[in-house]
Design a protein around this nucleic acid. Structure first.
Lengths: 232, 232
DNA sequence: AATAAGGTTGTATGAATTACAAGATTGAAT
DNA sequence: ATTCAATCTTGTAATTCATACAACCTTATT
């Protein structure tokens, strides 16, 4: 069933989902944006999104949009906020629910779909004017993301399976726009019972950094027994 | 313009807003519920809500629903989450956005509208089976409320203008289901620069408690200058 | 004068945060 | 072999904060 053909039928009052896809590289948090292929706002950069099909679960719509763009599966999606100003879409009433996903950039194979001529990772601090109210959606969503990064171990979704402590520190420094003391940061991390040291980097120019990994199972176990509360 | 008449037209894919109205009395957080006057779930208790009109802003719809039920105006509304399972409403696809409002119970003059035969404040721990997926909406929303109570001075929206420290302590004890030490709690509050002591209770049976109030202006001032961060 | 509830003071402990200094390790470049 | 650059570690000192708990004072009613 091709719902897009029925576009006009429910477009006077329709519901869409925008998916903010974050990644981390070179000490910078990036956002995956598309260049729109169609009016309105043709040629402008935008957060990828689509209408939600009439019988489609919201979470499923999020997964579909994420998969279409990145070819990723099994990624956790987090609901951000719903935006419903009557005039936010020039062609009619479109209420949109924003979701966000945290991805490992090297695993993302982004492909431009029919909606877009281009897909690009853009560091957050370089994101300029976006289509629709997407700048507002981004800033609200990033605030929510920061709260979650402070209270849940979501940072590991943005990092490779094996990461260095410098990478982890840079991630928090970028997100909260503040410099952290290296020695103190490491002491703090060493107290976290589900971050373990595995191997070393290879093929690097200098002393190889230790590689760490996040033991999700151990974290869930401690969480269930209320023996640890993640705070950064 | 009577949108309700057009109900069928967009009911196959419509958007509603549910409004969770919280209050605080006798050491207990209460929720304002209605007894439904119409099918589906006629006769069951439910969170008050309504369809969002096609040209109505989401925030305005929240204000309208809150005002219809409580006669209150100028209350801050907070967006909670959006619920969109395809089968959550038996008569069609209804995506609903939950908002919540924190009210001073003594200022609420709740009236049953055409939607409801009854309106009642129910302490949170006594809320039983609700219509639709409203139990899920309540539990998700209460989790979000707790996070906000920990990080923003929203507690004062639930308390009278002048409140005692015992009331404030009971509010947090009820919300987080934990007993707090009185002496330590008071020491903590005394360090907060925008909670000031004004008067004393009168006409009480025992020693009158000191009455405190929240200086919102001072809080906003400190917040703007990043000189204080509220944590409870 | 007794009672009940409100309210205060103090102390001891341990945990967590912050700031800063200094040095050890590893691999590449010369 | 030496130097360099980046990684990583150790230690210390001051400070703040949270937690637990005991003891006691104050104000009103009865």
């Amino acid at each position: 069933m091709n719902y897009k053909i029925e576009f006009d039928k429910f477009f006077s009052y329709s519901f869409s989902l925008d998916c903010l896809i974050f990644g981390f590289e070179n000490g910078q948090i990036h956002l995956l944006l598309i260049k729109r292929n169609m009016d309105p706002h043709k040629g402008e950069w935008a957060i990828p999104g689509d209408l939600v099909y009439p019988d489609e679960d919201l979470d499923d719509a999020g997964k579909r949009i994420l998969h279409d763009l990145t070819n990723l599966e099994g990624i956790r999606l987090h609901q951000s906020q719903t935006f419903g100003k009557p005039k936010r879409h020039p062609q009619g009433r479109v209420i949109t629910c924003a979701y966000f996903a945290l991805t490992k950039m090297e695993e993302v194979n982004a492909v431009a779909s029919s909606w877009a001529t281009e897909v690009k990772w853009i560091p957050l601090h370089k994101v300029k004017q976006l289509a629709f109210d997407h700048n507002e959606i981004l800033s609200s969503t990033f605030e929510i993301l920061k709260i979650k990064l402070s209270n849940e171990p979501l940072c590991f979704d943005l990092l490779p399976e094996k990461f260095t402590l410098n990478e982890l520190q840079q991630l928090y420094e970028y997100a909260f726009n503040s410099d952290l003391n290296k020695a103190n940061f490491r002491k703090k991390i060493k107290h976290i019972p589900f971050i373990s040291h595995d191997e070393k980097q290879i093929n690097v120019k200098h002393r190889p950094a230790k590689l760490f990994s996040f033991d999700q199972k151990r974290y869930k176990d401690l969480l269930a027994r209320q023996e640890y509360s993640f705070k950064m």
